[in-house]
Design a protein around this nucleic acid. Structure first.
Lengths: 114, 114
DNA sequence: TTGAGTGTATTAGTGTAATAATACACATAG
DNA sequence: CTATGTGTATTATTACACTAATACACTCAA
């Protein structure tokens, strides 16, 4: 469900946060959906459970996830759900800009990359 | 010449390394070119000189840069120089894949993003 | 020779990411 | 009630990124 890359330099809990944010905005995780358990994800990606927990806790602070004592974390009812296309494109913009910058440094057109 | 983003989570010295690698592969920094001084770059980006030095040192270990005592760092004579288009595209691939993955999580086509 | 310019080694300190091992409070099915 | 499943707080430890302040060896122009 998620893909983590420890060698990328980006903290694991941040990678997880970004992916969950996108899956919610993309509508693949509608409000009310239960997320994989901390221990399950930790085992699957050979990562410490507290690292997953950190991502969940921060997303709850953002209002995207909802805590249910003793029960799995769920996508918050107040979460935006499937965002309109414009907002989704906006969320993707930083990565597009980054790719464009890299292409320019390589003397390639953005079209070449795509 | 370079753009550093401390908030991205990617270590600064790594960001710098990636950009120098691309500028060399893109031919914008041909072999023999002198790089900006450590202190100059550090001042420009409000960063510690040793952070720049670390990037330079690692790139020298890779064979991309050349050390000249008392003189500026230069692009190594043995550096690949302007790489063929195929190799440049290959160097860009990881970022393209990353963008594609993000687009998919947002339920967007890669075409939408580009 | 002096002085300003290179990169770098050194030492010390701060903050963060991640791990490890427990332990706790709660929910729910048996 | 019990067992198993949630998430989380805690403490300690390791590693890394970055900063800071010096100091050094070297080059080169004045």
């Amino acid at each position: 469900m998620f893909s983590l890359h420890p060698e990328s330099g980006v903290p694991l809990y941040r990678q997880l946060m970004e992916q969950i944010r996108r899956l919610i905005a993309g509508g693949q995780l509608p409000p009310g959906t239960a997320l994989p358990s901390v221990r399950e994800l930790a085992l699957e990606h050979a990562v410490n459970p507290m690292t997953i927990s950190k991502a969940y806790a921060l997303l709850e602070a953002e209002g995207l996830l909802e805590r249910n004592r003793g029960k799995p974390m769920t996508v918050a009812a107040g979460a935006p759900g499937a965002a309109p296309l414009a907002r989704r494109l906006q969320q993707l913009e930083p990565q597009v800009m980054q790719l464009a910058a890299a292409a320019k440094q390589l003397e390639l057109s953005f079209r070449d990359a795509a």
